[in-house]
Design a protein around this nucleic acid. Structure first.
Lengths: 193, 193
DNA sequence: GAATAAATTGTCGATATTGACAATAATAAA
DNA sequence: TTTATTATTGTCAATATCGACAATTTATTC
């Protein structure tokens, strides 16, 4: 009887646009008009389908965490049992398979955490979760490693990866990327891969 | 005869305030009112002493580059001849001596580079300069190193350092900081310090 | 104390942004 | 074809922000 609801479609469409603005203008610089224009929708539709500014941010954060969780599990499932870490490093630092979106969104959210204690807590937990995922991978690749070594390698890989991707707004820096990949390899070199 | 000029004092005061806003709200989220309130001055004084929005950004970028250049040279001059890299790592990752301002400002400027090709070029050059400084330190610490190793270590240290400092808005993560410091040590471990 | 040049304050119009509500158009089922 | 429900558009007032200029105050020098 009713007209079919597009709310879910529109919602994704709007959150996609919000993410792009988030990367380009940051949390405080993202206006409803910019989101609307980016989404190709009228501004009242933003409100109709998602809500006001705060609702947009909250919905984006929730979707971001949900998605990064899913893609992390998928990546873990797709990793081979041998040469696990070498393959992981290839994926993380290959310019073709690289996806700077996650890093750029997290950078914007971390920056905005300075004014938003709740967001700060969320992003702190998200970071810990990311490190935990990586720790699991490393432990699985070399079960003889002690805990300290595991967290050291995990922190090193995360840092190198996010540094490279976060720099993408300034344009391609392929030599820096290659150097970071090499540094990552050196970190895992002494291990039993 | 004329009233003594406070232009230089006010200018520094205003640029300091702008930097704080830049870290908190980003380039697009920093308004003249926020800068004025942060500086404790009336808004027209911002215009009188520095200029409009664009002038503020440009002046801040120039001062940022100038300052980071000076502090980099000072740090190089202050480094000891023995245990150079170990000392450097201690400085970079000691929470007491750490200064997240540089990293947070550069993060904000890099993010804003997505809309501003000129800024992108500037920040790309600044990053290269930062890497070059570090390469020089590393080469000075171990003159037997080949070029590739030097740039690998430099990229690794820069990545680890900026990752740690850029995370500061979410609050202290002392274990992550310690893990990154340990990763940095592992990178320089095989060297003749 | 008067003159001069700068700092400081006051105020304006133009535009941007938000939140909210009303009105209209569209689509599927009965 | 009517009806119900939703999408979409239109419009409004309140506020925020910017750029600009005029008016006033202040401090130094003569």
């Amino acid at each position: 009887m009713p007209r079919p609801s597009l709310k879910q479609v529109r919602r994704e469409q709007i959150l996609d646009a919000y993410e792009i603005c988030l990367i380009r203008y940051g949390v405080e610089g993202t206006t409803m008009d910019r989101v609307a224009k980016e989404a190709g929708l009228a501004r009242p539709l933003i409100r109709h389908n998602v809500g006001n500014r705060d609702d947009l941010l909250q919905a984006t954060v929730e979707r971001f965490i949900e998605r990064s969780d899913v893609s992390m599990r998928q990546m873990i499932a797709a990793l081979p049992r041998t040469d696990t870490l070498i393959t992981l490093i290839d994926w993380l630092f290959d310019p073709a398979s690289s996806d700077s979106r996650t890093a750029l969104i997290s950078a914007a959210l971390v920056a905005a955490s300075a004014n938003d204690p709740n967001l700060a807590r969320t992003m702190r937990e998200w970071t810990r979760g990311f490190l935990d995922y990586l720790s699991g991978i490393i432990r699985g690749a070399d079960s003889t490693l002690d805990d300290k070594s595991v967290s050291t390698i995990a922190a090193g890989l995360v840092s190198l990866y996010f540094s490279v991707e976060s720099l993408s707004p300034v344009g391609p820096m392929s030599d820096y990327r290659a150097a970071c990949k090499d540094a990552a390899r050196r970190l895992v070199e002494p291990l039993n891969v």
